[in-house]
Structures are given as structure tokens and as C-alpha cells.
Design a protein around this nucleic acid. Sequence first.
DNA 1: ACGAGCATTGACAACGCTAACATTATTAAA
DNA 2: TTTAATAATGTTAGCGTTGTCAATGCTCGT
Lengths: 321, 321
Amino acid sequence: MGMTLKALSQITGYSMITISRAINYPHLLHKDTREKILAAIKQYEYIPNNVAKALVYQRTNIIHVYVPEDLSPTNQFVMQVTAGLGSYLGENGYSILISKNWYQHQNVDGLIVMGLSLQDEERLHQLAKHKPLVLFGHDDAVACVDVDNVLGMKLATEHAIECGYRQIAFLGIAQDKKFTKDRYDGYRNAMASHGRAINDRHVVFTENNTDSGYRAAKALLKECPEIDCLICSSDDMAVGVMQAAQKMNIDVPNRLGVIGYDGLGTELLVHPQLTTIHQPVYEIGIELAKILLKNIKDAEIGSKTNFYAPVLQPGATTVKR
Amino acid sequence: MGMTLKALSQITGYSMITISRAINYPHLLHKDTREKILAAIKQYEYIPNNVAKALVYQRTNIIHVYVPEDLSPTNQFVMQVTAGLGSYLGENGYSILISKNWYQHQNVDGLIVMGLSLQDEERLHQLAKHKPLVLFGHDDAVACVDVDNVLGMKLATEHAIECGYRQIAFLGIAQDKKFTKDRYDGYRNAMASHGRAINDRHVVFTENNTDSGYRAAKALLKECPEIDCLICSSDDMAVGVMQAAQKMNIDVPNRLGVIGYDGLGTELLVHPQLTTIHQPVYEIGIELAKILLKNIKDAEIGSKTNFYAPVLQPGATTVKR
DNA sequence: ACGAGCATTGACAACGCTAACATTATTAAA
DNA sequence: TTTAATAATGTTAGCGTTGTCAATGCTCGT
């Protein structure tokens, strides 16, 4: 397709290796030779073939970002992580290859895996033996970065308590994943350590979307009008809760406090601005990339988990009182 | 690093090509041979080296998605297009390589370029001569997919007129890009063809974000209280407008109609739900990918522009009256 | 004048794979 | 039985690049 060293060699009369040197070690060549060759390179629009280079160097400068099937690629979460790691990797001369298939492009210098579904576990371990790999999530056998979800929900709950809310309910995600359980644990721990009893009727699990949040909140607030604060396991759900409150003419934040979880930008769009637990996903992306590049450099196959702390991001759906 | 054909050849006693055939043309091998080799492949965890394959086949099955510097990778727009084209390319056995650098990985089978900044134009034309390439945007020399922004804003304006709004103002994006101008043209054309005069004081250009929208709307509605509909060049701006209206106790949609532009999901989060012009960006991503793969297949270097129509997506910020 | 050292260029092999052709053994057809 | 087709495997070369070593010519100090 394109111009090659061989062709250029025939055109200029110099050997292939000399042309190669004009690019990689120009100081080795005689000034005249160098100039002639560089001129020819320009004239014939020669572009080195990175595939051939990769074969020689045994590295591609490509990092594979694997997004499991059960995560939508449109997912805000995934996208922002990808943006973060993409920026770091880009600055360091790497490109990112995104694909849903494990083995389609195994010839990459490393992998970043976005969360783990069960059927992938075996392959993950398999692959981790051969290639530098960092997982967003938690697994004992590989290097990981994870968010401390227990801490996150603890922060949310303590914020609610500090604000002075008395009947703090919890809206969880009905999905069999570790992070959903962790968030619930954070809520329970914080409640317990502040001497608050948990009313079972104040804990509801539902699907993670606005509509489910709306419906769950409507039912919950109708049945338990004593509730004066609702902590949600996601911002999407929290938005639904706010819509329900508006519909039921419940004043947020005075009559009802609302706290979300994620902090990916949605919290700024709604009115009033949503108090939420911000997960620094962009930064986590960078962290994933940093760890990966370090492991590549040291030819190391790590298995440490690095926990990342979410932070409370106060909005206007909670007030001190 | 990994197991190679050569190593496997020594282990099994068969020649390299025979091992290769066990994978690519298993029917050519004797049953016993095939089974022995496949067993060895499994045992020694052989994975073919795609870099070497790419060198032979002269194709990588990788598509480069180039996102210009001036577009944030976190940008909803970019992300959803990428998600769309990624899904289509993925289904067709391609992976996508995302990078901000033009020449970092030229060894890809094709390029998708997300919008064009001026300093890139020369490189774009240069590259388009050598590689299949599709541009999201508009340029006479290369194959393009673009949104019909004039049509989009025409739809918005006509919707406002049909609803019965009388003083329809326009909030534009102060940026020297073609699409901003096109949207303004769409507004003007529609107004003109319906015999509506445009009051210059009813047209304001500002930055494309919620806060700017808020401030612009506040000033505009204060100065020109006769305005009863405000068409915005983006949903972010429209959200700001809605916040301003709320602050000023202006009833949306009865006293003031609000129309946004983009329809990327934001419109569903706000309350009331925002009437907007939806740009089918996910579908556009798929279209970009389709055209690219077709051009790759036909070894064709096209230069046709395919226009994509945005659609009106009615919400609750406009009413018929 | 003579080898040591340097500047400049080239030949060859290798990276891992596959296409094209070549070889051998086996079987069917004449 | 001889010939031709077929099955099963191997040999060689090449994809485009670079590392290693070799070769040539030159300068310089003695």
C-alpha cells in the first residue's frame, strides 16, 4: 500500500538499513546522504510500518481496554474511566484499543479490564499470567483498582446524620454485585456506629434507573411518611426520587433530604443540585493506567489492590437543621 | 514472550506450516495429526501473534478513531458516536484504536475522524489519499457524514411556531464553527418562511454551557419580557435557561417555551422534560462505520457527504396553545 | 609508511506468520 | 502395471523493519 524501505532503497540507491538510519539514527549518516534520503522520504511520503516495527521490537504501544458484555459502552462510568486512562496513556505514547472480545487482539502491551463478570474470571487469570493487566474491581489474583464503596456510603450516611435528619432510608440496587452489597454495608455500619436503628421498611432495593427510583420513592414515601432523608445507591435513582418528591409536593431538602451516589455530572443538571458521593472515575482511569505502565516497565505481574476513596459532594438536596 | 509456531513445531515434531494449518485449514490435516497438534496448542497455551499475521495479510483489523485536540474525550457527543461505531465495527471483527495523535499508529485499516479543526485539514487530505477515511463533519475532499443542522433548527423553530409562540428568541453558540452558523441559519430561514420578523435583540450568542445559558437567559428575559419562547443551540444551554426561568418565577412551558438541541439524554433528566432536537449520534456512529467498511472492502476512497436528519423530540417545555 | 581509530555504509539474519510451490506416499483409473 | 489424481506434509521465500557484525575508506600520530 504505502512506500516501503525497500522501494525507497531502490529509488535512492542506498541500502534499506541506511534509509532506516536516516530516521532512527540520523547522526550516523553523512550530512549529504542524510539530506538526500530525508528529501526522498518527504517526496515519496514514506511512513514507517509500525506493524513491522512491532514485530521487531516485540511491543505495540497499544493497551487493550476490555469492556465486559454486561457493561454498556454508553455507560457514563465506563466512558469517563476510559477518558481518564486514555489521556494518561496518550501522554505516554500509548494508544488504546477498545474491544469487547478477549482474544481478538492479544498483541498488545497490556490490558485494562473494566469490571469482571463471572464467566470471564478464568480467562482473566489465564491472561494475567502472560500479560501485564490491571482490573477495575477486585480480585485476589490480579492487580486492581477499586472504589471503597463501604466508605462511600458511610460518608453519605454520616452526612445525613450530621445534617440532622432523623429517619434515614436507603434505596439500594437490586443486582447481585459486590459494590451494591458494599454500599448497603456502608449505610448499615454508619447507622450502627451512630446508634441509629435500621427500620427494615426503610430499606428498599430496586433497579438502577430513574424510573425505578421514581416508583420506589413514591411507594416508600407514601407508606412511611416519617422518612425525612433518602440515600440512594446511584444518581439516576436519586433523580427519580426528586421527581417523586416534586410530584408529591414534598419539599427537598427541608422536608426530605436526598443523597445520590456516583457524581458523574448528572448531579449538576438537576434542580436543586443533588448532594452526592462523587467517585473520581477520571482519576481512577489515570490510576489504572499508571499502575499498568509501571507493571509493564518493571515486567511485573502484580496482584495488589489499590483502593480509591470516594468523596462527599454537597449539593442543595440536603441542609443542616 | 508467548509460545510460537516455531517452538510448537519443535515440541510436536511437525513443521511450522502444519501447526499453522491446524488452526487455519484444519481439514487439510490428517485427523490424528490435527488432534495431536490441537492438544499441544491447548497444553502450551499457544496464541497466534496477530502482529506477524498483520504483516503477512497487510491488514490489522483495527480502525483508528481520531478525536481532535479541541474535542474533550469526555464529551457526550464524541462518546456516543464512538459507542455507535464501536458496536458496528466490533460486530464486524474490527477493533477501534482511539488516539489524539495522527501518526502514532498509521497501521490501521481505516480512519474515522471526529470533526475537523483547521490545522488538521492538510493532514486529513494527505491521509485520505492513502487510507480509507470517513469524516464526521463536512469536507469536499473526503467521505463524510454530517448532521443537517439547518434542518434541525428549522424543525425547532417550526415547532415553536406551530405551538403558537409569538416572540421566539434564539440563543446561539459563540464559536466559529460551521454547525453554529448552520443552526442560526435554520432559525432564520424558518422564521422568514413563516413571515416572522427577527428582532435583533432576541438573538444572543454565548458559550455552550449551562451557566452561560443561565446568565444569558436571565439578562435576555429581563430586558425583553415580551419573549415567550427561547430556542437554544444546545441542551446544556437550555438547562441553564430553565433554571433562570425557575429563578425568575417564569412558568415553563405556559409563559415561556424552551427548546434545546442535542438530545443526548440530558433532556430526560431535567424537570419538566425538555423539548429538544435529537441528533441520532449513536446511529451516526454506525453510519460512519458502515461507510468506512464499505470503502475498505471496495478499496474505494470516497468523497461523498451523507447528511443525517435530526428529529424533533417533544418534551414538556413547549405546549400547544 | 603503517596500523589504530573513526566515519560511513552495507550484508545478513531475525521477529512470527502464511502463500505458493515442492515433495512424498497413497489410491484410483486406464 | 503404469499413470494420473489425491492426500498429507514440508521447503522456501517473503511481509517491513531493525540489531549485529562486517567492510570500506579515511585521518592521524608515530
